[in-house]
Design a protein around this nucleic acid. Structure first.
Lengths: 247, 247
DNA sequence: AATACCGGTTGACATGGATCAAGCGAACGC
DNA sequence: GCGTTCGCTTGATCCATGTCAACCGGTATT
């Protein structure tokens, strides 16, 4: 293999013309609420799509930030690394969600974004997004909402990590995934996990064995059917009840 | 006491003319990086200051959102409540920091903001901030950075809650406070905690007894001197070492 | 001044989840 | 097609933190 730039060597460089205006995710993603004319102006900005293979990085902590990314298809995780080697998954992202917002602050990415399956992303050069959102009020406001939503989401995770026990965390996790699959038109009751038990554990502040045991327990109690990464939710209310358990 | 609006009855309504342009926090707060002329335009927007007494709410979860708040002086906590009664402190905020960013997402506040000492805040009507930041590029960009910084901060807390043990969490907490006091011109080595052990515990995902024991342990080991809410840091490196403990 | 209350500290004990270890099936490389 | 590896499951044991309880000092209440 010829030597290539270490930053880009592991991402596929195939670039495809793309357009928000005919993207079926536009109601979930950045274009939400824009008029047709405004959409076309956004198209000019979001001009490239890129494929990222499973296991490859979209970006790495420390790299300079200059764009945010919208997931066109696929599945990602983000994680942060501590100096001493510990790391933690900070989120799992799916189609229509944005990646890279954390980089605006320092103008460098502060986490790693890794594809958990072959994926496609749209690059949105950030300074051009700022320019355009100075002109399109709706875009500006929606972008602010998206950033704010990320903050609210993080508070939810803090709550989960700070106050919930293992089974509550996993129930919350499954219900959240289910809900997000639903709003993308997939089954709410049956899906494949894209991540390992270890990654789930890292996200939930648990060890992989604990995650595995909780899955088994949910199965014994008839809430779900698990077979490796294949999950079927048999009793949504059972899972919900697990969460309000404590007084 | 006469019956008053339940939303406002517990906040002091004294309103004071204020100006970012002569605020000594302008390098920490929203005005960062603005020119004199731009500063004056921000002054028009941030026209009111309000006093909040210790223990009073600045806002409550569920209330409609229409402004963000800059802390002029004082100290706040924010917390979220789960339906089942559990709650968690999501942050402690001090002078120069912004409150209310979580409300942009749903146009309702999603947490409670409570003053931990008598405080003064500046109200910034959000739609006017958006207008102005469409005109002032620097303001727009800085505001985006502030929101992004909040996301990065939350990731740090998630890391803390997900991977650290009790003493590491408390050490990280003290070092973070110390650093924030320092950048406000206060002693980095000596300060008064504004919050109770229980509030610290809630923030760090620990019980108050655990927090208390960790304080005592730090004292035994000579890292700090504690007397109730009065903290002196005797050995910063000792605290830092506690955090990189694990491989 | 007496009393109640609140926040903090400390001790004894319980327990949820981590750790260590073994084994198993599916996927993958050769 | 076979062996190796990886992700997952399950069991046994351990330990950090939670839980329960007693006590103390400072502050607010009457």
């Amino acid at each position: 293999m010829p030597h290539t730039n270490p930053v880009t060597q592991d991402v596929s460089l195939s670039v495809i013309k793309t357009a928000c205006s005919n993207c079926n995710l536009r109601e979930l993603c950045l274009p939400f609420g824009l008029s047709l004319e405004e959409l076309e102006r956004l198209d000019d900005l979001v001009s490239t799509r890129r494929r990222i293979k499973r296991g490859d990085h979209l970006y790495r902590a420390g790299e300079p930030f200059d764009a945010i990314y919208a997931i066109r298809s696929g599945f990602f995780k983000t994680d942060v690394l501590l100096e001493d080697g510990r790391d933690q998954v900070t989120g799992f992202q799916m189609a229509g969600e944005l990646l890279g917002l954390d980089g605006i602050s320092t103008e460098h990415h502060t986490c790693n974004a890794i594809a958990l399956e072959d994926s496609e992303i749209c690059s949105i050069p950030f300074s051009r997004l700022e320019s355009l959102s100075r002109e399109i009020h709706t875009l500006q406001h929606h972008f602010h909402k998206v950033m704010s939503r990320e903050i609210v989401r993080d508070h939810g995770v803090m709550m989960l990590l700070g106050t919930m026990r293992a089974e509550e965390r996993l129930a919350a996790f499954l219900l959240n995934l289910s809900q997000r699959f639903t709003s993308r038109g997939f089954s709410h009751a049956e899906f494949y996990l894209r991540m390992t038990r270890e990654e789930i554990g890292s996200y939930l502040g648990l060890k992989l064995e604990t995650v595995s045991r909780a899955f088994s327990r949910f199965q014994e109690e008839g809430h779900i059917a698990v077979q490796q990464k294949h999950i079927r939710i048999l009793n949504v209310n059972g899972l919900k009840a697990l969460m309000n358990h404590r007084a």
